[in-house]
Write a protein that binds this DNA or RNA. Sequence first.
DNA 1: CAGAATCCTTAACGATACTG
DNA 2: CAGTATCGTTAAGGATTCTG
Lengths: 122, 122
Amino acid sequence: MTRSADRRGPYICGIDAAMDVVTGKWKSLILWELDQHGTRRFGVLKRGLPGISEKMLIQQLREMEEDGLVDREVFREVPPRVEYSLTAQGKSLNAALRPLGAWGKERIKRIKARMVTVDSAE
Amino acid sequence: MTRSADRRGPYICGIDAAMDVVTGKWKSLILWELDQHGTRRFGVLKRGLPGISEKMLIQQLREMEEDGLVDREVFREVPPRVEYSLTAQGKSLNAALRPLGAWGKERIKRIKARMVTVDSAE
DNA sequence: CAGAATCCTTAACGATACTG
DNA sequence: CAGTATCGTTAAGGATTCTG
């Protein structure tokens, strides 16, 4: 739908394949949210991601569902309720992202440290 | 230059910060190439990344240099020679990407397995 | 509530030609 | 050899409006 002709390979390596699934401004955050809370319905998920539009949230969720990362359960009630949760693959992907997250935290520290240096220099 | 107003934060979490530095169609591959071979000059690096244009290679290398991932050493000779290598940060980022790469390899396996199933079904 | 549909802006990427 | 410069395409992301 949105992705470049539904990319999905051919991949030249594992990182390429993983990136294909995880890039998109919000995917890693959705992964994180769902990993923390287990199951969330659409509206709650949206409130947990300040700044995201409904269009983007749906779009990313649909792609993640296609990619087997997310389960979508529809309750035919009025008003409608839809719940999202991680599949086993989604959970393992989130686990695989953890070292990268740790690296990123260190990077943030370095950036802040440098800002302090610059500040006191002027 | 190319990046959204030089992004570089503010970041909402570590993954966000790491992704900012690693997204771009070629960056993780450049990281991998330099990690494997230690030091490469421009032309060799290019031949190691079939399909990349010179513009993209330079652009990505410059951003990675700005981000402290890559060292660039210029030898003032004729003809010119420039060598690229990973900094300590670049190396540790590459290490942090390894679990993601492993996850991606598993994903590729699953996709292939599914293709076989589909093939034999028709 | 959870979305579908539409329109629009911008950023990523690519191809080509030229240069110290 | 290792770049710049320029131009064009496509894809990602966002804002708004409408609906079962």
